[in-house]
Simulated scan of single mutants.
Amino acid sequence: MYIKKILLLIVAITLIVGSIFSYTIYNKIFDSNTNFDEVTKEVLIPTGTTFNDVVTKLTPYLRDVKSFEWLAKKKGYATRVKPGKYVLIKGSNNNELITNLRSRNIPVKVSFNNQERLENLAGRVAEQIELDSLALLQVFKDEKFLKEHGFNLNTAISMYVPNSYQVFWNISAEAFRDKMWKEYGYFWNDKRKGKAEAIGLKPKEVVALASIVHKETVKIKERPRVAGVYMNRLKLGMKLDADPTVIYALKKSENKWDRVIKRVLRKDLKLEHPYNTYKYKGLPPGPIAMPDISAVDAVLNYEKHDYFYFVADVENFGFHKFSKSLRQHNNYSSKYHKWVNSKGIKR
C-alpha cells in the first residue's frame, strides 16, 4: 500500500510538472508577445543581418525577448535570417512573428519621374530601397546590357518609364534594372509602337522629343501642340531650335548639373555640342531628361496644325504664343524679351 501511494504521488507530481512545462511552452509559442500601441510596426532587415542584429532591432517591440529567441532557434530562423521589409502586427505571438519574418517579405513602392540623368535616377531609387546609388548606376551603365537591348549611354535613360512600381526593398541592382526593362516592354505595347511608326519615329526617338516637349511646357494640355511644332520642323528638315537642348548642352559640356539657367543667351546658341539643336538638325543623341508619360503620349498624338514657332506668353504665364510665320513669332518674341529684361533676368 505504501509503495502504491508513492507511485501515485510520483505520477501526480510528473503530471503537474508536465502540465506546468507544457503550459510554459504553449505560452512561449502562442501567447501575445508584442509591445507597441500601433496596429503594425514596419521593420527593415538589411542583407547580411545576423540573428543577434534582428533581436536587437526587435527588442523595443517585444514583451518577452527571451521567448522569441528560444522559438526562433527551435524553428531554425536564427540561422536563416532573410533580408527585406516586414510588418509586425500588434498582438502577434512568437510563432506568428517568426512566420512573418521567414516568409512575408513585403514589397515597397518605388516612384521616380523627371530625372535628368542616370545619376539622378540612381539616387532617387536608392532613397527608396536598400541599394546605394553607385550599385544601381553601375548596372544602369552596363554597356553590354545596353548594347544587347538596343541602347547606349545617351539613350539609356529612355528605358526607364516614370511611374510607381512594386519591388522588394532588398531587390538586387540587376533585378531592378531587369524589371524596368520588362516594364519598358509593357509600356511600349503594339499600340504605342504602331503610333510611333505612323509618325516616322522609333520609341527612343519619341522619348527624346518628348523630353524636349516636357521641358518646354508644364501644361499637359499644351504639350500636343508643342509636339506638333517640332514635328512640323522635323518634316521640313528644319533645326528644332529648342532652348532646353541648349541648356542641357551647357550643363553637360561644363559638367555642372546643378547650374540654374533661366535665360538662354545668343552666345549660347553657338555652342558646339551635339545636343545643341540650334547647331544641328534633327533630334539630339538622346533625351535631355526623363519625360513623363503625358509628354510621350503628346508626341505620339501630336496636334496637326501649321505652327512652326512658339514663345512664352507673358500675359498668360505657363502657356505659349504660337505662330505660323517668323514675322508673327518675332513680334511675340519681342514682347517676351522686353518682359524678361524688365524683370532683370540676365542668366
Rank of each mutant, 00 (worst) to 15 (best):
I3D: 12
K4L: 10
V11F: 13
V11T: 07
I13A: 15
L15C: 10
F21N: 07
S22K: 10
Y26A: 15
N27E: 12
F30E: 06
D31L: 11
T34I: 06
K41W: 00
K41M: 13
T47D: 10
N52A: 14
V54Y: 05
T59L: 07
P60K: 08
Y61T: 09
Y61D: 12
L62M: 04
R63N: 10
R63V: 09
V65D: 02
K66M: 00
W70P: 01
L71R: 08
K75P: 06
Y77H: 13
T79K: 02
R80N: 15
K85Y: 09
K90N: 06
S92G: 13
S92V: 09
E96Y: 02
L97S: 00
T99N: 10
N100I: 13
L101V: 03
R104Y: 08
N114V: 06
N114S: 14
R117N: 04
E119W: 02
N120A: 14
A122T: 07
V125Q: 14
V125N: 11
E127L: 09
Q128G: 02
S133L: 06
L134Q: 15
A135M: 10
Q138T: 15
Q138A: 15
V139C: 03
D142S: 08
K147H: 03
F151M: 12
S158W: 01
Q166W: 03
V167T: 04
N170S: 11
N170L: 02
A173G: 04
A173L: 04
A173V: 12
A175P: 11
F176S: 02
R177H: 12
D178W: 08
K182S: 11
E183D: 14
Y184G: 01
W188Y: 06
N189Q: 10
D190V: 08
K191E: 12
G194M: 00
G194H: 02
K195M: 06
E197R: 14
E205G: 01
V207L: 00
L209M: 06
V213C: 11
T217K: 05
K219F: 15
K221N: 04
R223L: 07
A227R: 09
Y230S: 03
R233P: 05
R233V: 09
K235N: 14
K235L: 12
L236D: 02
A242E: 01
A242G: 04
Y248S: 02
S253E: 07
S253D: 07
E254Y: 01
N255F: 13
W257T: 07
D258W: 00
I261E: 01
V264N: 06
K267G: 01
D268K: 00
L271H: 10
P274L: 09
Y278A: 12
Y280R: 14
K281L: 02
K281H: 09
P284F: 06
I288F: 12
I288L: 09
I288E: 02
I288K: 04
A295N: 08
N301M: 00
K304F: 04
H305F: 14
Y309R: 10
Y309V: 02
A312F: 03
V314D: 02
F322M: 13
S325K: 12
S325C: 05
L326K: 03
L326C: 01
R327D: 10
H329Y: 06
W339H: 14
V340Q: 01
I345F: 00
